[in-house]
């Protein structure tokens, strides 16, 4: 489990949900964090949110009023997954830089 890579969509969803956000907020946040590169499509996001709730990595916040959009937040389990993923990414980056001698010389 810990060795499995997260998809980019899941990584940015988890990262965005360190604060409560609704669906559209996640899309905007992922786009902003990646300087416009990551554009989560709404249908894909919907599927990912449901899978993450099922896994217990995020949860839906109780709706205050019916008109408000549903908000989500990361759980402790989700945080641990995210930390493990950052560790994995660090390893990828370290190996890449070591072997190619850093970005400047590559």
């Amino acid at each position: 489990m810990a060795n499995t890579a997260l998809t980019e969509a899941v990584y940015y969803i988890l990262l965005s949900l360190t604060e409560p956000l609704h669906g559209y907020g996640i899309i905007q946040n992922a786009e902003r964090l990646s300087s416009g590169r990551v554009k989560l499509a709404a249908g894909t996001l919907y599927g990912a949110i449901n899978s993450l709730i099922e896994k217990g990595w995020i949860e839906a916040l109780p709706e205050e009023t019916a008109s408000r959009k549903k908000e989500y937040i990361i759980t402790q389990a989700g945080r641990e997954i995210l930390m493990a993923e950052i560790e994995r990414l660090r390893e990828l980056l370290k190996n890449g830089e070591e072997i190619l001698g850093g970005f400047k010389d590559a």
């Binding site: 969509a9 554009k39 989560l40 249908g43 894909t44 996001l45």
Partner: peptide
């Protein structure tokens, strides 16, 4: 309001 797609990753495109 920006680009409109329903599916942004290969998995959800394959599923559809």
């Amino acid at each position: 309001d920006g680009e409109f797609q329903l599916f942004s990753d290969t998995d959800s495109k394959i599923k559809q």
